[in-house]
Design a protein around this nucleic acid. Structure first.
Ligand code: DGT
Ligand code: MG
Ligand code: MG
Ligand code: ZN
Length: 569
DNA sequence: GCCGTTTTCGGCCCGACTGTTTTCAGTCG
């Protein structure tokens, strides 16, 4: 069982305990444990079965270690099953209505027998909530709105959508008097693969007109909150925007706070406590006296830490590394010398080879690889050996015409259901670059899928495993297979694992790419571009690589062409 | 439930905004 699934057991446990009115710190322990498992650099179930002492992992103690053992052995958690007996199955879903927390859910359930969103809405409409302790007219009205929003499908958004929305809002606020600076913070600044909302920090005099301007944006559907330093709105389409306003001399502390992550903040604040300091969005303080606040760097330094790049701020070991001067030198976009997966008009792309080459040269690249789909990928117009051979002649022509960039003859060969490849070995031997990826039969049993991938990895002509898990963000789950085994074989065979940079994929993800890097597996960051504009998605992949703690060393498309070709051979 | 070069018990990040409240609880960032 993968770590994310195990984490879900503890998250569900936490939700039910919360509704039952348990000690909030105990609830938090379950949430911390869930996170610890999710972020673990190895499979927790496998580790438990192998007899590893899981209590060595921070956030996991005797009780939860035993529960992981139980889940690993039986696939079930008795404690959770018993808890589920105590409340209606739909009740925890009420926690996802914004403004509703465990206290009110408990109240509604106990006093009125509410057991679902439907029954809650009905009770609210019939006026049965009025008169309950702490519930007035406005509470009910807000609740009904929140239920409506929930129904319309509030949820998380892809990072690219979040970044676009942030730009729009920042442009809207830009020229407001009294605003010196605007910057996107939160999960957007950390480059999380999805964002729950858009967080924007404004620097300026408190009490200025920026709050009005913000809540007056034409796309604002609902003002959720509005105070002196902080406002939240919901836009048409359901995206929430949070704005925080602070003065310039607290910019660093404010940005630190608003960038998060929450877990990073909590860990920093705990560290500050241990040093006799206090950290908040207003600065680092000893007693009433401010020690830092204007710049992030200064805040970190006052806590004895190096400045931590936002992509690492997930409380996954970065604070300890920063304390010991052990932060990695993360890969940067400028280190990238080429792009090793893209498509052209020969299949489902929108631009020609020459146009892709020209655009890539414009990005400063030394090389690209054209990697059309093979014939099994019918929907994309995949090519057979004859068509690909002809296509390679076109690539030769482009190479003869330009000196600016080298175009490699590649292919994205489909991995068939049995792990065989969709093109003949003799043809593959003639390619400069072979990317192999799965595009069908995603629901094979885990063991079969692992064998399928391993067989492809063992194929002597395969250089890169493309979009290794097949997930589509917010759309399709990764197919199930033994990740550790795939990493092991990739390393043995010298096969490079892709970080697909397209914002709908980001596959491998940050956690998995980090695991791969730690195991000595080589990676590359490719855009899988289907147009010249698609080449610019590289930045998303690079930031995922950074979130994976990767340096340029483990990423092959930072190599010069000669060195790359040698690695491929 | 977890954790400990000041603790094995008694803490657990710190603050803004709202609604219903007369001093604050709940929820959220
Ligand atoms: N100290 C502290 N900071 C918090 C807490 N919750 C949120 N923050 C800070 C860190 C977050 O990155 C930032 C923005 O909050 P969000 O709820 O929008 O979270 P974030 O953007 O990280 O993730 P998201 O994609 O929006 O779910 O505010 C908290 O409980 N304590
Ligand atoms: Mg956010
Ligand atoms: Mg937010
Ligand atoms: Zn593909």
């Amino acid at each position: 069982m993968d770590n994310a699934k195990i984490a879900r057991f503890f998250e569900e446990t936490a939700e039910i305990l919360e509704i039952l009115g348990e000690n909030p710190f105990r609830v938090r322990s379950y949430l911390n444990a869930a996170r610890a498992v999710r972020d673990l650099n190895r499979n927790a179930a496998a580790a438990a079965k192998a007899g590893e002492d899981l209590t060595a992992i921070p956030g996991i103690g005797e009780s939860i270690a035993a529960k992981i053992g139980e889940i690993a052995a039986t696939g079930r958690l008795k404690y959770l099953e018993e808890l589920k007996e105590k409340i209606p199955p739909q009740l925890p879903s009420l926690l996802r209505i914004s403004g509703l927390g465990p206290k009110k859910v408990k109240l509604f359930h106990e006093k009125l027998g509410i057991d679902s969103i439907d029954s809650l809405e009905k009770a609210a409409r019939e006026g049965r909530l009025d008169g309950l302790e702490g519930v007035g007219e406005k509470t009910v009205a807000n609740l009904l709105k929140a239920i409506g929003n929930r129904r319309k499908g509030e949820g998380r958004f892809r990072l690219d959508a979040g970044r676009a929305a942030a730009e729009t809002v920042i442009a809207h606020l830009k020229k407001t008097p009294g605003v010196d600076r605007l910057v996107a913070a939160g999960s957007i600044r950390r480059w999380s693969e999805t964002v729950g909302d858009v967080d924007i920090l404004a620097v300026g005099k408190p009490g200025g007109p920026v709050m009005e301007k913000f809540t007056g944006h034409p796309e604002v559907e609902q003002v959720l909150a509005k105070g002196q330093t902080k406002a939240s709105v919901r836009l048409d389409g359901g995206l929430q925007i949070d704005l925080r306003l602070l003065p310039a001399d607290q910019y660093g502390a404010a940005l630190l706070y608003f960038t998060g992550s929450k877990d990073h903040n909590v860990a920093l604040r705990k560290l500050a406590q241990e040093k006799g300091l206090k950290l908040s969005e207003y600065g680092v303080f000893r007693g009433k006296k401010s020690r830092a606040g204007r710049e992030e760097k200064e805040c970190y330094r006052s806590l004895g830490l190096e400045w931590i790049p936002p992509e690492l701020r997930e409380n996954r070991g970065e604070i300890e590394a920063a304390a010991n001067g052990k932060l990695p030198r993360l890969v940067e976009l400028e280190n990238i010398r080429g792009d090793l997966q893209m498509h052209t008009t020969a299949t489902d792309g929108a631009n020609t080879i020459a146009e892709m080459a020209e655009a890539a040269a414009g990005l400063g690249y030394e090389y690209i690889a054209i990697t059309e789909h093979s014939r099994a990928v019918r929907v994309a117009g995949g090519l057979d050996e004859t068509a690909l051979t002809k296509h390679f002649k076109e690539i030769d022509k482009v190479n003869r015409r330009t000196r600016k960039i080298t175009v490699l003859k590649g292919v994205e060969v489909d991995i068939l259901a049995d792990g065989g490849l969709d093109l003949k070995d003799r043809f593959l031997a003639e390619c400069d670059l072979v990317v192999a990826s799965v595009h069908s039969r995603f629901n094979l049993p885990e063991g079969e899928m692992t064998r399928r991938l391993v067989k492809a990895l063992r194929h002597p002509r395969v250089h890169i495993l493309g979009h290794p898990t097949g997930r589509l963000i917010l759309d399709r789950e990764p197919y199930g297979f033994d990740l550790d085994e795939v990493f092991k074989v990739a390393r043995e065979e010298g096969v490079i694992l892709e970080i697909n940079a397209h914002p709908s994929r980001l596959d491998l993800n940050d956690i998995h790419a980090r695991m791969a890097g730690e195991k000595g597996v080589k990676l590359c960051v490719n855009t899988d571009a289907h147009s010249t504009a698609g080449l610019e998605m590289m930045t998303y992949g690079i930031h995922i690589a950074r979130r994976a703690w990767l340096t340029g060393k483990s990423i092959v498309n930072t190599l010069e062409l000669k060195a790359l070709l040698k690695t491929l051979r």
